[in-house]
Amino acid sequence: MKIFRSKPFLFILGIVIAACVIMGGVYAFGGPNLLSGVLGAVVTPLEKGVSAVTDWASNIFGYFYRYSSLQEENARLKEELAGLRNQQREYLEALSENADLREMLGLKQKHREFDLEYCSIVSATEGSYRSGFTIDKGSVNGIETGDCVIVSEGMIGFISEVGPNYSEVLTVLDVSTHVGAVLSRTRETAVSEGSLELLPDGRFKLSYLPNNADVEAGDPVETSGYGGLYPQGLLLGTVVDFLPESHGISSYAVVEPVVPLEELKSVFVVKSFEVVR
């Protein structure tokens, strides 16, 4: 009985009670508690400052030591840009023809309107089993839990937690991420989800595909838009392989994300969207 009245026991009991109050607050009210929000509001600008300094140092280093590789990359990108400009001309012609045809048929004009917020990545999520990062904007900027996170190439994740001036993002590689998807070529529906087995390779899986699905390496995968959670037609990645599940009832595709996620420095958050196809 003496032990229950000892100072160390009462101290530990105090810690347990305080932690339970915090956990209970999160369970009752959702989202980060007041203390976490304040800490995040303090830490995020400091992390942003440190990231800015390391980016500056990395650019200086790159200028001196990676000049030749930067030259090669510049030449390659110029060639790619020329090809993309030709594609854009064809795209604009097709767009114009599409608009005319829609008008003839009396259909609503195809458009996609996104309300975007530009954000910088300030830190990576802790843990070898998770894939995510923290960005420098939060509820003050109109960001909400569940908002889609994209780059110019496509979707890379969603907002999992929002503080006043920071938000936590879980990427498409994370095990808790599930996104309704379709194969662009065949319109086969599936679910994109993270996998602990594929995470070390920087890939994720496209699950619930029939065993006889027409899937080829190189097939693009995009968001289906079903459920209205995420905009339709955002590129998620490219198929690398098509394999049967261990239970044999269905198969899955191994998908590579649109960009190498560890190289990202900034992203866009889609605060609201309207897609008409």
């Binding site: 347990v16 932690a19 915090i22 607050g25 203390l35 800490l39």
Partner: peptide, 21 residues
């Protein structure tokens, strides 16, 4: 522990409990 919950998927309070004890 409270500080570590910033940018961590672990629920708030768990790491504070662990590191405190």
């Amino acid at each position: 522990g409270l500080l570590c919950t910033v940018g961590s998927p672990v629920p708030d309070g768990v790491l504070a409990l662990y590191y405190g004890v």
